[in-house]
Simulated scan of single mutants.
Amino acid sequence: MPDVIFQDGSIQRDDWTVVPRPAEGESLKIPEQGKALIPADLWLAGYEHFAGNYSVGVWFDSHDEPEILEGKVNELPVIAVNFPKFSDGRGYSIARLLRERFGYENELRAIGDVLLDQLQFMKRCGFSAYALRPDKDIKKAVRCLNFFSQGYQAATDTDVPLFRRRAS
């Protein structure tokens, strides 16, 4: 099966290549054809070169700080957040900061060790696309994203808690 993601309620072809961080002393190797996600700090370092190029997006590792892109986030067509292992929850915080504090409006993608049972929580934090771990059945994503009909607390998908929604 070609590389696919789950986005907008369906399985779609993934046109983006995640470019790994180069080793010490090596240069960044961006594919000549197609779209590329590069480390956020390297995009910022080459901002003059990358600004306005909508075939280049960025990815954050779980220990990166999204503040480095403050004021520039909506110049990016895609921001991906890497989950190096499913138990590392820092990516959820990065997503909330990008959506709520920095006002990011474009595609926010979860990559790495992304499991089906995390999708509902990722959605509530602001993710809009999911690159599941290859051994997971992407056809189950719709059910997992809509497993709960209501969330109790406010989040990026609804800014009003359930008790206030019920009162009105």
Rank of each mutant, 00 (worst) to 15 (best):
P2D: 14
D3V: 03
V4R: 11
V4G: 01
I5T: 09
I5L: 15
F6I: 09
Q12C: 09
R13E: 15
R13C: 02
V18H: 05
P22F: 02
S27V: 11
S27T: 14
K29S: 12
I30C: 01
I30Q: 07
E32C: 01
E32W: 03
K35C: 09
K35I: 06
I38N: 00
A40W: 07
L42H: 03
L42F: 05
L42T: 07
G46Y: 00
E48M: 08
E48V: 08
E48Y: 00
F50W: 14
F50Q: 06
F50H: 11
G52F: 05
S55Y: 09
S55D: 15
G57K: 06
V58G: 03
V58M: 06
W59Q: 07
D61N: 12
S62H: 10
S62N: 12
H63S: 14
H63C: 08
L69S: 02
E70K: 12
G71S: 04
G71M: 01
N74H: 05
L76P: 00
V78K: 02
A80R: 04
A80Q: 07
A80P: 05
N82T: 03
N82K: 09
N82H: 12
P84G: 01
D88Y: 03
G89M: 12
R90Y: 04
S93R: 06
S93Y: 00
A95G: 00
R96G: 04
R96C: 06
E100K: 04
R101W: 02
E107S: 04
R109H: 07
A110T: 07
I111L: 07
D113H: 00
V114T: 05
L116F: 04
D117P: 01
Q118T: 05
F121A: 11
K123G: 04
R124A: 06
R124W: 04
F127C: 02
A129F: 02
L132G: 00
P134A: 09
D135M: 02
I138C: 01
I138M: 11
K139D: 15
K140L: 15
L145D: 09
N146T: 13
F147H: 12
F147P: 04
F147E: 14
S149M: 10
A154Q: 11
A155W: 05
T158V: 13
T158N: 15
T158P: 00
P161Y: 01
L162M: 13
F163T: 10
R164K: 14
R165L: 10
A167D: 13
A167W: 08
